[in-house]
Nucleic acid binder design. Sequence first.
RNA 1: GCGGGCGUGGCGGAAUUGGUAUACGCAGCGGACUUAAAAUCCGCUCCCUUCAUGGGUUGAGGGUUCGAGUCCCUCCGCCCGCACCA
Length: 858
Amino acid sequence: MSRYNFKETEAKWQAIWEDRKLFAVGERADKPKYYVLEMFPYPSGRIHMGHVRNYTLGDVVARYKRARGFNVLHPMGWDAFGLPAENAAIDNKIHPARWTKDNIATMRRQLKAMGLSYDWSREIATCDPEYYRHEQKMFLDFLKAGLVYRKESWVNWDPVENTVLANEQVIDGKGWRSGVVVEKRLLAQWFLKITAFTEELLRDLKTLERWPDRVRLMQEKWIGRSEGAYILFDIEDASKDEGERLEVYSTRPDTIFGATFAAIAANHPLAQKLAGKDSRLGDFIATCNRSGTSEAAIELAEKVGYETGVRIRHPFVNGKTMPLYVANFVLMEYGTGAIFGCPAHDQRDLEFARKYGIDVIPVVAPKNADAEAFAIGAEAYTDDGVLINSDFLDGLVVEDAKKAVVKRLEAAGAGRKGVNYRLRDWGVSRQRYWGCPIPVIHCAACGVVPVPERDLPVVLPDDVTLDKPGNPLERHPTWKNVPCPTCGNKARRETDTFDTFVESSWYFARFCSPDADTAFDRRSADYWLPVDQYIGGIEHAVLHLLYSRFFTRALRQCGYLGIKEPFAGLLTQGMVCHETYRDDEGRWLFPEQVERAADGTVVAKAGGKPVTIGRSEKMSKSRKNVVDPEAIINAYGADTARLFMLSDSPPDRDLDWTDAGIEGAWRYLNRLWRMVNEPKTPLAPVGAATPKSLGAGSEAAVRAVHKTVAGVSDDLDRFHFNKAIARIRELTNQLDGLDSKNPGAGRALRFGLETVVRLFGPMMPHLTEDLWHSLGHETFLANEPWPVADAAQLVEQNVTVAVQVNGKLRGTLDLPKDSDRETAETAALALGNVVAAIGGKPVRKVIVVPNRIINVVV
RNA sequence: GCGGGCGUGGCGGAAUUGGUAUACGCAGCGGACUUAAAAUCCGCUCCCUUCAUGGGUUGAGGGUUCGAGUCCCUCCGCCCGCACCA
């Protein structure tokens, strides 16, 4: 029996497509444009299965839209700056530029072996000065537009390595290389003013109709708009510092009469000031600063506080004062860095109060509760209710009480209504080498001076040493020494580089005109943008996508482009998982290190000892549950890998990689290949007219083909690739069973097979291109239009209707489509099983859903 | 800790969005072909009970409805994000 030679076939068509420049595109007026983009990869070394999945999904969309008549832009590039290159430099003594370049070469070769329909002439790498010089220009334009500023901000500091650590380099509060406890430290850093667009970023989420709801919801929560009040508390005995007041933000100003303490962040200016007179407070603040800078680390830490001895006055109760604490769970970045605590109606405040013996005064009671008897136990009461113990607020519901409090506060000059956001400005400074230099110069006389545009790009120096801790740019003997562009005196270059999220915030626009002298040609950008379909991992749901949305608005403000939203459609794909293996000593094993023994158990290839199989988890190097895409492509071909990736799970869910699954996909490819190359029924000649009369079997097959075309088109429009494949497989099963004696079988089979080949084109481009030619065609399948179903062939004459008695299925009926109520009801009540189930009881009601179901209620 | 999501046979999943649960595939079992194996082809396969009829089942429990995998509430488990990984 013949087998499909994927190696030869895939290489052949890849060469021909490339040679004919089939996927190179330009702007054109005669077709609608469609821009499909997959998140570009970080060049970490070799492609992994997550890439294969991501790029397969994108390629199906690109090829499908091309067939549907769109002028499709489908580019690829490299997110080439980042921390791993520096780690590799330290570990392997290889220059980050060299390492990155080698990795790109490897990964480009691997991607090309997948047969992806990219316009490779548009390839970009963000570490190329031709790319990042435009980013430096953007930064200067943002600076002019007031969208950039400098301020002090906290970083993770490793006191042994004398260097700043990324959150991922802090493990259990310790530096990953040094193992010593990490401290927080203040550093002057550059910030992009994303908060200038907060309301817009929030409001415009509604316009992103083709984004998953969960991503929009996550962004909404991330921006975190809340309404409340800013309240000023007088500080007792603040005689030396007249007029000093503590400002807090609260979303529950209605609970002000339940306030029994106040707390400020460890790095609140008042805490710093008080620490000057209280060394134990200083120690406490130092302890707080020993936890990491990540919100998770802060929130997960045990909640502790320090009573300062300072007391603050209640704004409405004369003579009432409350203790002021410094607490590790109050964040300086949120609100004013200060809160008032109302333990009765906030769970965290309640736990804090119980721990430090602070009073708990209920001020909101459930509507029908007995106010006298209402007490707080272990749970704070956070629902709506009626105000009690609250002077002028008593009897009001929460909403009205909030308004009443704000009114009084404003009248007393002790506060105001206010809106607050969780969103903070974007800190873009990184104390690292392998990133885009920030184009400013520090002059002792002139201050911060932007690098003049004629001096761009500020290029990274090549001659750096990465074997010592700290930023190599800082240590470089000459690079940072420059004359001040304004006064000409000796000055110092900024040695911080950009967060790599900056590069990925505008790369989609660079692809529109990758060789332009400016960041991008405005006309090209106007033609191609926004991206019609963006595809990538859910892990980018907030940061990358929000930063890109911000950047697009900032670029618009600076006149670069005219759109607000960069990505009109978004598809977030799930992870690729694999089961895990451990040997008898608990060490992880790669899948290729284990095998199934004769008795069915799984053992290690080396030594034959039994292996414990763990559940399927995200593929990761640390657990060794990875399968190398290149090995799969060498063993089965790209089309098999693509088919399996698409057929086994819907794109937004996790996918389990299994050997059995890939084997099954491979068998199917061969089956299809044989159906075309060794047909059981001789195929009608190419282009032959359809005979006047076909046998019943052939006619049914033709109808099935039309139904499949309609179904698959609909599935692909909704990204239900797994369902589309199931449908086509059903059709091939039917075509395989077509009796060759049936009149018109050869014609029906040709029509069926040609359609199957065309429908599978976007998913398995090499095999189908080859079969298309085997079927006698000389055009490129990749250039063929998408098949269209004949609407007349889709109409069913009869439908199967389910018949239930009291909601339980008792039989089915074959009825003409759109039968009227009476016909359906009469037929249903005549069914033997239905009569038996009714058992002579009176029929109360008969529900008829046309063409669907009949339910008899007795 | 906070925010978001997911949960359907031995496994991946389907279910026209409130109307016949388990399509399609994987694995398994039986058969055909073969000296034999591989490959291929045919058949069976959610669970319990039965000659048959029947009954049960969508992580667990409750609710709404003529009817719930789908909507609501409570709980359990797993996953993603938390601003210096990308």
